[in-house]
Simulated scan of single mutants.
Amino acid sequence: MPSTLNELTDPFCLRAGESADLLGGHPWRRFVVLGDSVAEGMCEPVTGYSELQWADRIAAELRAAAPALAYLNLGRRGLRAHEVRASQLDDALRFAPDLALVVCGGNDAFRTSFVPAEVDVEVAAMITPLRQAGADVLTVGMFDVSHSPAVPPAVRPGLGERMRLLSTHTRALAARLGCLHVHLTDHPAVADPTLYSADGRHGSARSDAIAAAETVRRLGAHLAGH
């Protein structure tokens, strides 16, 4: 990437005033996040990009349009899907959200024993009660971290296959359960090494900025009836 690229010039990031146009007058007042390290926020700093984590960015954009927005992030690193459900769902429901972000399964997909149907069961068990409680639910097909330069070449094909399988299953589950889905797996920048951290498992501040932009755009499309 050119050394002059930053959040203001990055073609994939939010433009000035874009979020206000998309989210102005939005109805959400209680936003909860459930998930693993992607939800908690572990992006690696990149010069020229905000260090605000992805979920925190979404909350900030929502709050800019609705300053009284209440926000609870339950995300914790290292959790598999069944652990997210067991440790976070009850607290999320007690929060009485009208918007929820559920992002997990990545730690399951890092294992060669990954079974997508088992993750589907756990994610559905979180989405269903949140939807029944009246919340709009966001799900995400995340960037394919197998493109990270830190991932050993021998591991990349299998990891990439599993990450894409997770994304495909999550997208189908979201459609079936009436969720708002953000699909990042086929994003034009997915193979750009600047999107990934040095640990080979997480994203960079640039990936969080792009993910936030795409999430805001998905919310805006929903508000516009698309």
Rank of each mutant, 00 (worst) to 15 (best):
G220L: 05
V46N: 00
V182T: 02
L195W: 00
E61S: 05
W54P: 03
N73S: 07
L14D: 06
M142A: 14
N107S: 08
L52Q: 15
A172L: 13
V46M: 14
G203D: 01
V32L: 07
A20T: 13
V155S: 11
D36I: 03
S146L: 02
G178S: 03
R176N: 10
R76K: 14
R131E: 07
V151P: 03
A175I: 00
L79H: 09
N73Q: 07
V190S: 04
L74F: 01
R206S: 06
V190W: 00
V123I: 15
H147V: 02
D36T: 07
A96P: 00
D120Q: 12
G78A: 08
A150Q: 12
I58M: 03
A133L: 05
R171S: 11
G78D: 06
D36Q: 10
F95N: 09
L62Y: 04
G75Y: 09
E83G: 02
H147P: 01
T4V: 11
V38T: 14
A212N: 11
Q53S: 12
L219P: 01
A125D: 12
F114A: 11
C104Q: 06
V182K: 08
H26W: 09
S148R: 03
G25T: 03
R85V: 03
A100I: 03
E7Q: 15
G225P: 04
A16Y: 09
G48R: 12
P67F: 08
L184H: 04
T215A: 02
E61T: 04
A39R: 08
T128Y: 00
G106L: 13
L74R: 02
E83R: 11
T9K: 11
T185I: 11
R111Q: 15
T128M: 12
L69N: 07
P27C: 13
L180D: 01
A209K: 10
E51I: 13
P153V: 13
A92S: 05
V119Y: 06
A81F: 06
A174F: 01
P67G: 04
R15K: 15
D120R: 15
F12R: 04
A174K: 07
W54N: 08
L101P: 00
L223S: 09
G158Q: 13
L219D: 07
C104K: 05
V115H: 13
G225C: 09
L165S: 15
H26I: 06
L130E: 11
D199N: 01
L69D: 08
L166F: 01
V190P: 01
E122Y: 08
L5W: 07
P193L: 05
A20Q: 15
R218W: 00
T215N: 06
A92N: 02
A70M: 07
A198C: 08
Q132P: 01
L22F: 07
H183C: 12
